[in-house]
């Protein structure tokens, strides 16, 4: 067992070291691309079971986005849905013998958190404008500007550390027990890892929704409150 805080290159492409998380991520990308292509080749108004399952998943993602962000889910569906699916498959990839999940390394979690951080800024600026978005850092008063700036950084780090800690710890615990107890003993812990992986994927996606939703709705009345106000008029 190697340290999760260090990465060894499997091979190099020129000066670029290709590590195991990158390879596993490429494998996940290939699998997901093939599955997406195969399952959306023959979509029909009368869905098959697989199409119905996929549509149910997309509807669930849309529903979660709409509930969390109080906004139309279409612009955020690809980002949130991809993060959910990727993190879930990355977490569950530990079930394959010899494969270490990419999310058990800081680089992958940091990449995901950076993408969420950038997406938060992008959607906030697109929704409120650059000045409007910057003004949100002075809410409720200018005194809060340093705290809000620090919050942007800390919540991104919290995303990284939460996912990394949960998945890495699971992998380590299983590795330690496997080395100490034997072949079949870690199976219950692996089952628990499945649950942990699913929960962490859900939490990561929901927190991304919350951050983006907060960015696009900061300083504006909630959508529901707007609707109620329009109804009262």
């Amino acid at each position: 067992m190697t340290s999760p805080l260090t990465l060894d290159a499997v091979f190099h492409i020129g000066p670029v070291p290709i590590t195991e998380p990158v390879l596993v991520t490429w494998a996940i990308m290939v699998v997901l691309s093939l599955v997406a292509h195969l399952m959306t080749r023959r979509l029909s108004l009368h869905p098959s079971r697989s199409q119905a399952a996929l549509e149910a998943m997309v509807s669930a993602v849309d529903s979660q986005i709409a509930d969390t962000m109080q906004a139309d889910p279409a612009p955020y569906r690809a980002l949130i849905g991809t993060i959910l699916i990727y993190v879930l498959l990355a977490n569950w990839s530990s079930l394959i013998p010899g494969v270490e999940p990419p999310t058990a390394h800081l680089e992958t979690d940091a990449a995901l958190a950076v993408i969420v951080f950038c997406a938060t800024i992008f959607y906030g600026v697109r929704s409120l404008g650059a000045a409007g978005y910057l003004k949100t850092f002075a809410e409720p008063s200018w005194v809060m500007i340093p705290l809000n700036l620090v919050e942007q950084i800390t919540r991104t780090f919290s995303l990284i550390v939460r996912l990394f800690g949960n998945i890495m710890s699971g992998v380590f615990v299983i590795g330690i027990i496997l080395s100490l107890a034997g072949f079949l003993v870690p199976i219950p812990l692996m089952a628990l890892d499945l649950l942990t992986g699913a929960v962490q994927a859900y939490i990561f996606a929901v927190l991304a929704c919350v951050f983006i939703g907060a960015a696009i709705s900061e300083g504006r009345p909630p959508r529901r409150a707007e609707a109620e106000q329009q109804e009262t008029r």
Binding site: G81, A111, V114
Partner: peptide, 21 residues
């Protein structure tokens, strides 16, 4: 690795957006 994973996830977002969602 951080950069490659960022690019990988962005590419995956595009792929799934184009072919799935």
């Amino acid at each position: 690795t951080l950069g490659l994973q960022t690019v990988n996830v962005l590419v995956l977002i595009w792929i799934l957006s184009r072919f799935l969602f």
